[in-house]
Design a protein around this nucleic acid. Structure first.
Lengths: 179, 179
DNA sequence: TTAAACTTTCAGAAAATACTGAAACTTCAG
DNA sequence: CTGAAGTTTCAGTATTTTCTGAAAGTTTAA
């Protein structure tokens, strides 16, 4: 591993916990992304200086995020791992999985709590807040899943639009008025 | 604290680490959101059964995320804490702070690494990947900051648009062609 | 000044999390 | 079958993170 590549892999490790997994899992993912060829478990454990068992657990974790693929080489019984999908797909998967872990449980708790009537003034206030939070999270979630269902090409247009988004909305209003 | 309120506060604790801070900080934030009145440090430590020192550290953390405000009551030397801004503002602050912690350092590392020439085929591949990641993160970042700078009203239109976003883009193309 | 009423800090303890390595398991060629 | 070549599991250990509480720091009323 050259210095530049190593710096990237180690950085992925440091960021790992912020991105939702732990240091080694982050390093493993970085390593797989940056390597043209798929790597075996032993290669990973040697490159990162971690135990074989840890690699196994890390791969399992990455699979639960749908971020790695298993491959086989002819005449070789080992499993070889490589990142699943394009960079763009990886990003959407991380978003999606994080939503499942960070937002969905909260939405469900809020819904439950909003089912029964508030018992007193304090609970009334609490429920109002929960309602606000619920609606906001739901809007964001719906919006995000809209984006994920758009074709990548359209999505790209939309993203590149940047400051233009605002203009397009104005345009829509005009368009609807004049049409 | 009634059962419902407590379940919300405890849930915020469990989610805390996923949202970027730790359990107690999550609980503290939940408690402040759900309470109509601002709370003193001692009230927080009693409600959550944590030490006074821990409350002090937690408040500091929440302040670094710009999520709490300090208030004073007349004839009272204590500090009282309450959430800063509306639910919507809280959400954008969490986004923004997470971007600073999760994305910005990566962008800066990638930029550094992309400055020098690749030394060999392996590094060439690595740099290509880093370039892809860099561009994607940059696009997402710019897009996100666009959204944050839009007026809440416009943003709401855009959000409510949902599936319609796609249609508006088509419309824009038509509009530009015909106009 | 002084001292009461607070807040912050931080060393050490406690709790949570991650890692190792050996044993158990699986798969498959012969 | 058998055993070689691989993968997974998990009890125990190491590391990291969080929490406590006492000491130090700050502010203000008198």
């Amino acid at each position: 591993m050259t210095a530049k590549i190593e710096s990237f892999v180690m950085h992925c490790g440091e960021m790992g916990s912020r991105w939702g997994f732990n240091r080694t899992v982050g390093q493993m993912y970085g390593l797989l992304i940056i390597n043209e060829e798929a790597l075996s478990a032993v290669q990973i454990s040697e490159a990162l200086n971690i135990s074989r068992g840890n690699v196994s657990m890390g791969i399992k974790e990455l699979q639960s995020w749908r971020l790695v693929q298993v491959q086989h080489k002819p005449k070789d019984r080992k499993e070889y791992y490589s990142p699943a999908g394009s960079i763009w797909e990886m990003a959407t998967r991380v978003f999606e999985e994080r939503r499942k872990r960070e937002v969905d449980p909260t939405l469900s708790l809020l819904r439950d709590n909003l089912l029964d009537e508030p018992g007193n003034q304090q609970e009334q206030f609490a429920q109002d807040k929960m309602h606000e939070i619920h609606d906001l999270l739901e809007t964001i979630t719906n919006w995000a899943s809209e984006l994920q269902n758009m074709s990548p090409a359209k999505l790209n247009t939309l993203m590149k639009l940047g400051a233009g988004v605002s203009k397009v909305i104005d345009m829509k209003d005009k368009f609807l008025k004049n049409g």
